[in-house]
Design a protein around this nucleic acid. Structure first.
Length: 769
DNA sequence: AACCCCGGGCTTTTT
DNA sequence: GCCCGGGGTT
């Protein structure tokens, strides 16, 4: 019986993979190159331990970086282990330790209802602290202090250490803010992302028997993307490794791209020193990319020093050359990407979902997004302003945080006057001085607002009213689902009414987001099962605080994916475009400030990560100029491109044909012409290339026409530019702009009263004049 | 207390 | 070019 399972698990593996999967005990380091079957090794190893070595699944802890990676491991293990997977501890560092902290919070002076602050929440708190401190602290920038504090925490430095070691008075000031920040976090019964790693360490130090309990519990620890762990994470895990030293880490030093977040590449380079007698296994066979793509990747990363030497190889054929697209400016670049994406799709029968456009900074997404929308290509942007970071979502979540954790004054500050209910700064100051004089959290004194110094009866009444319905919601949350609490909250807070009064395009978008949040709550409430006595709302909040956009990435939907290079790690696509391969963008300008060259090497690894996402076709794009803020900057190709041997690429240059002045004359040089060639008539970009540069791009100008002159045909808008309309509150006006938006139209209307408003056609209920 | 206008800073990447 | 906060006005 066991033998057949054993056979089944190892038959699909190559020799080093098999060795990693069957390794029984003692420290194991798997250096897994891009696309070498890393996830397969991890999941098979877990299954093998459970089925062949009979390790109880409840005693294995598998840590990943993203929820997506954890989800993928779980779903693959589902097939191998069935029911047993529910007992495995698989999740991100942050979610696993958040879970442990919920159970043990009391031991370190928190309650199980603690709030989790994201970067934005932390920044708000820091900003408030800076305001409360003497005026000379006003020079501090909250965002940079937040970053510095995060860094201090990841490096395991206390506020006192930072203060005593401060080399500069700015740092001494930051240390002061850091100390106060820690104090107020605790007062708010709140933890930031870094605390989710640091507090368990504190817990284990304070309560050795708790540590012992978890150490005994996790007899096998596995870590994915080990190259991205920081010092704190490493120390935390090391404290959990038991006598048997059954720790298995899988990573690739060439894909370490989170140094700025405190990831310490030394963790992987020095693993062998830290765990004596470690077994090291290298996975160098790549199953993802064609030979050419792999050679491009190797050529780039080879330039880095301080890496473990390795060379990926493949049995696949060499495939097409990588295409270098030389563009005039970022709009041209976006157009070229659209053109080539359309051409590849027609020619190679690739669907949209098999294509990705990767870039260094989120700001680059706008031009790309516009081009995709104009061309009518379905696309999806991952990152940028993430769903849970939108204002209306954060507002509602802040209410919920206060309901779960009334000590969370930072969240209360956020929503006490949102929507406006007449509780302004003056009232807030009086309430908070009442709170501090009593040594109670702000929320507690809301009920007694009538006793606060200098508040009018009517203002105090408003405060008490707020407190009353918040208490109703609190009571509700103990027995009802998260979605019930949320819908009641929306009703009682009159949040939607405050938006719907506006009738603008923006307010409409916010209302759609709220509807989406409600359905997310409903979806969660349906699958919620009580755990550790946490209410549905608490559990939902805990989960949503730690999810990221990429976790919602639905591979079924036929959309092209646009995202940053960082977000692309761990994914693969048949066709990949990397946009903005320019000096000072990739590598980013700031990388040159670092004289050690370490930042530059990280940028190179980032480029390497991007290249190795591609399975069959790779496009590297750069533009000779790029709009940044208000002005246009000249740019030149990335020095990384020079590292790629000429015979591996094929160049498409539009530079000789495209005067830079084209930008000034409006949007595009291809607009005026009306030659309508089918998209499929693109130039033979996939055929044998012309080595060297310089060849003019044949007829590309001609084919841009139909893509950008999209006629709206069947969904012809009911409104036209220049048309005169009447709105029931704003009066008469003229339509300035009509643009499609999901299944509706966005209108820009200048009213005779002088206002210019953005409206959604469906809701504006305009009449013709 | 709410609204409006202006100026400054921002864009590196994220659990 | 956009968002936020500050300062002024209503």
């Amino acid at each position: 019986m066991t033998d057949s399972i054993k056979e089944k698990l190892i038959e699909a593996l190559n020799p080093p993979q098999r060795e990693a999967v069957t390794h029984k005990s003692g420290p194991l380091l798997v250096l897994a190159g891009a696309g070498s079957g890393k996830t397969r090794v991890l999941t098979y190893r877990i299954a093998y331990l459970a089925r062949v070595h009979q390790v109880n699944p409840g005693r294995m802890l598998a840590l990943t970086f993203t929820n997506k990676a954890a989800g993928e491991m779980k779903s693959r293990l589902q097939g191998l282990l069935g029911e047993d997977i529910s007992r495995l501890w698989i999740g991100t560092f942050h979610s696993m330790f958040a879970r442990i902290l919920r159970r043990e919070a009391e031991a370190i002076g928190y309650t199980a209802h603690y709030s989790i602050y994201d970067t934005d929440d932390s920044q708000r708190l820091i900003k408030k602290i800076i305001k409360e401190l003497p005026a000379e602290f006003g020079s501090l920038n909250p965002a940079s202090v937040q970053q510095a504090v995060s860094r201090y925490k990841n490096d395991l430095r206390t506020p006192e250490e930072v203060r005593d070691q401060a080399a500069h008075f700015v740092e001494r000031k930051a240390a002061r803010v850091y100390a106060e920040y820690c104090r107020q976090l605790k007062e708010n019964n709140a933890m930031d992302f870094d605390d989710l790693i640091l507090k368990p360490m504190e817990l284990f130090r304070a309560e050795p028997e708790v540590l012992e309990r978890y150490r005994r519990r996790f007899s096998y620890i596995l870590i994915d993307e080990y190259q991205d762990t920081n010092r704190a994470q490493y120390n935390l895990v090391r404290s959990l490794v038991g006598e048997e030293r059954n720790i298995c880490v899988v990573g690739d030093d060439d894909q370490s791209i989170y140094g700025w977040r405190g990831a310490d590449i030394r963790n992987i380079l020095e693993f062998e020193r830290d765990f004596e007698g470690v077994t090291t296994i290298r996975l160098e066979q790549n199953y993802r990319s064609t030979g050419n793509i792999l050679e491009v990747a190797n050529a780039v990363v080879r330039r880095n020093t301080g890496r473990k030497p390795k060379k990926l190889w493949t049995e696949k054929s060499s495939g097409a050359r990588a295409v270098v697209l030389e563009c005039v400016h970022e709009l041209d670049e976006a157009e070229q990407i659209v053109i080539h994406a359309s051409a590849v799709r027609t020619r190679e029968r690739v669907c949209w979902r098999e294509m990705a456009v990767l870039y260094r900074t989120n700001a680059q997404s706008r031009a790309l997004e516009d081009a995709f929308r104009r061309a009518g290509i379905p696309y999806r942007i991952i990152g940028g302003l993430r769903f849970y970071e939108r204002r209306e979502i954060k507002d509602l979540m802040a209410y919920l945080k206060v309901i779960v954790n009334p000590r969370d004054s930072t969240s209360l500050y956020r929503i006490i006057n949102v929507p406006a209910r007449g509780i302004g700064p003056a009232t807030l100051t009086r309430l908070s001085s009442l709170a501090s004089s009593r040594g109670e959290p702000l929320y507690h004194v809301l009920a007694e607002a009538d006793q606060a110094e200098g508040l009018t009866d009517s203002t105090a009444g408003k405060v008490i009213e707020l407190h009353t319905w918040m208490e109703e919601l609190r009571a509700l949350s103990r027995s009802e689902s998260a979605s019930k609490v949320l819908t009641e909250l929306i009703r009682l807070s009159r949040y939607e009414e405050s938006l719907s009064d506006l009738e603008t395009f923006e307010a409409q978008g916010r209302m759609e987001n709220i509807a989406e949040l409600v359905s997310a709550a409903q979806e969660y409430s349906e699958r919620y099962s009580p755990e550790n006595g946490a209410t549905c709302l608490e559990a939902w909040l805990a989960e949503t605080s730690l999810v990221s956009e990429i976790d919602f990435h639905d591979p079924e939907e036929d959309c092209a994916t646009l995202m940053t290079l960082h977000n692309a790690k761990g994914l693969e696509f048949p066709v990949v475009f990397i946009a903005g391969v320019e000096e000072n963008l990739l590598p980013i300008a700031r990388a040159f400030e670092d004289t050690t060259g370490a930042k530059l090497e990280e940028e190179r690894r980032l480029f390497y990560v991007g290249i190795t996402r591609a399975m069959d076709k790779l496009f590297l794009c750069w533009a000779a100029s790029r709009r940044r803020f208000a002005d246009i900057l000249e740019s030149s190709p990335s020095s990384f491109l020079r590292d790629i041997p000429e015979e591996l690429v094929e160049r498409h240059s539009g530079l000789t044909h495209r005067p830079a002045a084209a930008r000034r004359s409006g949007f595009s040089f291809s607009r005026g012409g009306g030659r309508r060639a089918p998209i499929g008539a693109a130039p033979p970009i996939l055929g044998p290339g012309r080595p060297g540069s310089g060849g003019a791009r044949p007829t590309v100008v001609g084919i841009t026409g139909p893509i950008f002159e999209k006629d709206y045909g069947a969904d012809e808008p009911a409104y036209r530019m220049g048309e005169r309309v009447v709105h029931h509150t704003f009066g008469s006006g003229t339509i300035l702009e009509v643009s499609p938006y999901s299944d509706d139209f966005k209108l820009l209307v200048r009213f005779d009263s002088g206002f210019t408003k953005k409206l959604m056609a469906r809701f504006a209920r305009l009449k013709r004049e």
